[in-house]
């Protein structure tokens, strides 16, 4: 299994905000993830959370993403999970949340369209 460092980075892109996560999202720092995701919603732009470098995620990490989705819905902005790693996808499927989230390969794919 690949080992990415635990990271959360927020990037202001053209027309959306991208939160890039890496490493093993668990109880030890999922609150940081939660704060970053909620902060990204503040600007009112669509938010993508890039999960390509996430090797592990537990229910507290998933909860942060759920909270992000709910926050986005209440603001009426788009919220998508980008480049979801196989490990994260397996947990989303186990939690039956894989169809609740918008999953996309790229932000272009997620936020394109009308």
């Amino acid at each position: 299994m690949t080992n990415h460092a635990n990271t959360v980075e927020t990037e202001q892109c053209a027309g959306h905000v991208l939160v890039r996560l890496g490493g093993e999202v668990d109880l030890s720092w999922s609150q940081d993830v939660r704060r970053a995701v909620l902060a990204a919603l503040q600007g009112g732009l669509p938010v993508g959370v890039d999960l390509a470098a996430v090797d592990y995620i537990d229910s507290s990490g998933i909860a942060a993403l759920v909270e992000g989705l709910q926050g986005a819905r209440s603001r009426g902005v788009a919220f998508a999970l980008i480049a979801v790693s196989a490990q994260v996808r397996a947990v989303l499927e186990l939690a039956r949340l894989d169809r609740v989230f918008t999953l996309a390969a790229t932000t272009d794919e997620a936020f394109a369209g009308p």
Binding site: S59, A63, E67, L94, A95, L97, V100
Partner: peptide, 18 residues
Amino acid sequence: PLGECRSGGFGLALIDAV
């Protein structure tokens, strides 16, 4: 219940599922 879009509380549900 799994699949319910609420933050938190589904750790146990995951355990049940596994």
